[in-house]
Design a protein around this nucleic acid. Structure first.
Lengths: 351, 351
DNA sequence: CCCGAGTATGAAAGCGCTTTCCAGACCGTA
DNA sequence: TACGGTCTGGAAAGCGCTTTCATACTCGGG
């Protein structure tokens, strides 16, 4: 009854945080008849406080709908409880998913993510890192940075770092392997297993670390099956639809012979799909195609795309966990699951 | 033991903030031989200060590499210079683009966006609004909220709001029209202009404000051309690929007759595309299909999708500008550009 | 019954910046 | 020369919280 009423009201207040226009820790202290320090101690569990005071304070907190001011808290503690997440494009389909899972992981530990995008430009990336730093983030997660290692190393002196797609040795840095090499191998091995011998590679932007690793995986797979590599079978895209489209066209006009294509990401693959279609080539009857990333849309292309799948959920949460462990001084053991191949309808055995 | 504890704690602090520039406004003041207040005044331009002191301070700032601590600043000013942006899914292709442009617009005015996702669930959305509020954002941009108007109205009492896809009358709220109705009309008008008479509608989730408006546009277009509406021509999707796929299948198995389909968003349309393909129906020869949103991928579907295009850049920046104007008390005049139809290859005249 | 070891709690000192308040310098005018 | 007014810039009081330091107070052993 009474309690029920109070409860629902409280909930509403909290919901709007309307409660706190002026409710401070001090007012709670006054209401509870204790000192601010005691309230703080109770709220943070930083010291033992007698049962009755705890009750009094909790009651006051509930009654006033007190919500600690994180800004003041940050200032006092010297930590902002927010961590910067810089990716290259917040609106990229693949990274979008990863960001969503980072958000989830961070929030769970009550850190707030601050997203920023580097747009594949060193300068932009540097600028937004500066911005995050000025906002006093407690750590930065860099999703496939394009900055040089040395720069990152010195950045690590200012703030703990989690980064993907590269190895930088520092106690304040955790590197997450995104399995580009084994993923690419998986794809190409599969094609080879299907009897394909002449497999083209539709690469990502040169210099882009991910792209380089996927290329390496492609070459490694060929090599381990003793298939000769030919640079004529390689076309450079830029990870976009249009890049994939153009690269495919180029491959087609160059008259090289191939029966399968491994595209370094799904966006390229989808562009390639259209280019093939325009040439009257059927997938998979004439050409087999494998992508990388398993975008949500890739299950709905025509035909549905066979592609390398990684659990973005796990990736993102691993990144978030790694960061939190790093910050809180716990040992960080980024575990990760291996990539798998989502076999759909864009591939078939050769001949 | 005791010492060990202290030490590890110390280390932890260093890890967070310790190593970074301990250069504060006060140290700048000292270096420049003036008082902190003067430095603050110069930095913020809040009062007139003599030329020589300005020079001295600027020199000191440059020399020490002083970067004001935004946390302290927020606490003192009572404003955080950050604004909350809640969308339903940070990883949705369409909203992703909008978020990117909001980020740009906000950053330009040196506000920081704080993104959060509601996942189309009232509860989640409420929770993340709470979170943003507790972080003391200066305003909140809600991209197609699913919360009731009354709730938003009372939220507006706490914090200025910019919201899309609905009308809520309040001086502290700016509503941005995302042109769902005219956009949908555009699409359907086009199909009608092409001679189609039986046009199916592949809707979004019921109750979703955007979806409702797009549906309205569909009906309005039919009506204005005196085409009779039939509920049998309407299938409900959920804005996802698979939803579109299923809805299309349902439409197909229901044996209604139609020559064209208007899908309420591109993801649905792409799902529908596959469903049609599976049935051996060709687009556009057998069925014309129009989408909505013009996702980057939509130019690369097979066939490339005719779809309603809106300038996400402008939308996002308009939202950002509106928010900033609202906060800074300037009159906000959200201007917007009309949607256009990107005519590609998924449509053709009837018969 | 007293003394030292704990312990629960309050007072107060920050965290780094903004802003109010006030004193002194400087100007013009009578 | 004196007086009101205008400026400039320093001192200091916050912003709301954490944390150290100090102070009563409890308890058990000698």
């Amino acid at each position: 009854m009474q309690s029920k009423l109070t409860k629902s009201k409280d909930k509403a207040r909290t919901a709007f945080a309307g409660s706190e226009s002026a409710v401070t820790l001090e007012s709670v202290a006054k209401a509870a008849g204790v000192s601010p320090s005691t309230v703080s101690r109770i709220l943070n569990g930083t010291a033992k406080v007698s049962e009755d005071k705890v009750r009094a304070v909790n009651a006051a907190v509930a009654k006033l709908g007190f919500l600690p001011n994180p800004v003041a808290r940050s200032l006092a503690r010297g930590r902002s409880m927010s961590i910067g997440v810089v990716s290259q494009a917040i609106d990229s389909p693949f990274y979008g998913e990863a960001l969503a899972s980072i958000e989830k992981g961070l929030l769970r530990a009550s850190y707030t993510p601050m997203f920023a995008s580097g747009h594949w430009r060193e300068e932009d990336e540097r600028r937004c890192i500066d911005h995050l730093l000025s906002r006093r983030v407690d750590g930065i997660i860099l999703i496939t940075s394009c900055l040089p290692d040395t720069w990152l190393l010195s950045l690590a002196k200012r703030v703990p770092l989690v980064l993907t797609g590269r190895k930088v040795a520092s106690p304040r840095v955790i590197c997450l392997d995104f399995d580009h090499v084994p993923g690419a191998r998986l794809a190409v091995d599969y094609l080879i297993g299907q009897g394909h011998k002449r497999i083209a590679f539709l690469g990502g932007p040169t210099g882009h670390p991910d792209a380089v690793q996927r290329y390496e995986g492609y070459r490694a797979a060929l090599e381990s099956h003793r298939l000769t590599f030919s640079s004529r079978l390689v076309a450079v895209g830029d990870y976009t639809y249009s890049g994939g489209f153009q690269a495919m066209q180029q491959l087609l006009t160059s008259k090289v012979d191939f029966s399968a294509v491994f595209a370094a990401n799904d966006e390229s693959a989808q562009g390639a799909l259209l280019a093939l279609h325009r040439q009257g080539l059927r997938v998979p009857q004439d050409i087999s195609l494998v992508g990388f990333d398993d975008l949500p849309s890739s299950a709905y292309t025509i035909p549905p795309l066979t592609t390398v799948h990684r659990s973005t959920d796990q990736i993102g949460e691993a990144a978030a966990d790694a960061m939190i462990n790093l910050i809180e001084g716990r040992p960080a053991t980024p575990k990760h699951s291996s990539p798998t191949l989502a076999i759909r309808e864009s591939t078939r055995p050769w001949r």
